[in-house]
């Protein structure tokens, strides 16, 4: 093949970029399992001379995050407690909305959808002040419940977008046939739409899970020490100016914060990519 040298160059470039994308992950991984002085003495890129899990242990249950030396464990749990209900509620609502907006259309529904969709794109700074007030009003300030509420409110736009795009490709004749067969609004949804929604439900759940788990702004704005999510705790750990910087602990903590979403990405990458692509409105 005459293209041989060109192919080699091609693979070389692609390989180089693999290294580029993997580099930070490598740095985090190797430095999370080596003693601190190996890092501070300029050995960041090297494999550990002494392997140790102490930084992980430290980050998980001992490190000073905020006022108490609790490690990241309670915050990891906070994130889980926040993510699971928020994702569930937003997905269910999104599925119902998508169903109405595609199978029970009415005059003006596209405009309503457009108005909902705009909620995906607003800079959340615009809602921080009134939301802080409202959560106080609802007695949800500084609680995991408050964060769940906020994430549901601003997650609906996304889940509605996903389900609307998916259901608009779902044959409306099926819904009409079911109607003639005597099925009502919810029966049709439950018996006809839901059993055929597997892929988009996965896409939507992954997207919401990733977004809500990774959120920082709402967590930083609306939580207190008892309800902080993982991202906020990690940032506090890394930014804290007291004492010596324990880089290895920081890296271990960062990997912990990344693990759930990374796990989802590895297991269901295909759906993750589809979720990203659905950023275009028509899907």
């Amino acid at each position: 093949m005459t293209l041989r040298p060109a192919r080699i160059l091609l693979y070389a470039i692609l390989g180089l970029f693999c290294l580029y994308y993997l580099l930070p992950l490598y740095v985090m991984l190797v430095n999370s399992v080596k003693p601190l002085q190996e890092i501070t003495s300029g050995g960041m890129m090297e494999l550990p001379q002494v392997w140790t899990l102490a930084p992980w242990h430290n980050a998980w249950s001992q490190a000073q995050v905020g006022v108490e030396a609790t490690g990241l464990k309670p915050y990891f749990l906070n994130s889980l407690l926040m993510v699971v209900p928020a994702v569930t509620i937003a997905t269910v609502l999104g599925a119902l909305n998508g169903y109405v907006l595609t199978k029970w259309r009415f005059r003006g529904d596209t405009i309503l959808f457009g108005l909902m969709l705009f909620g995906c794109f607003i800079p959340f700074q615009i809602v921080l002040i009134p939301m802080a007030r409202s959560l106080g009003f609802l007695n949800l300030s500084g609680t995991v419940g408050g964060l769940i509420f906020v994430h549901v409110v601003y997650g609906i736009s996304f889940s509605t977008l996903y389900f609307r795009n998916y259901y608009s490709a779902f044959p409306t004749e099926l819904v009409r046939a079911a109607e003639i067969d005597g099925a009502g609004f919810f029966t049709i949804f439950w018996r006809i739409l839901v059993p055929n929604s597997g892929p988009i439900a996965v896409v939507c759940v992954i997207w919401l899970f990733t977004n809500i788990w990774n959120d920082f702004l709402f967590g930083a704005s609306f939580s207190d020490f008892s309800s902080q999510p993982m991202t906020v705790a990690l940032n506090n750990l890394v930014q804290s100016s007291t004492g010596e910087k324990e880089y290895n602990v920081h890296f271990a903590g960062a990997i912990m914060a990344a693990l759930p979403t990374l796990f989802v990405y590895i297991v269901a990458g295909r759906f993750f990519v589809r979720g990203l692509m659905s950023g275009s409105v028509k899907g």
Partner: peptide, 19 residues
């Protein structure tokens, strides 16, 4: 190429901050 998109910006920030 795509996995960084799954990470929190905070994680990305920590990794690059120290790197």
């Amino acid at each position: 190429y795509l996995y960084p998109m799954a990470l929190s910006f905070i994680v990305t920030g920590v990794a690059w901050k120290w790197f």
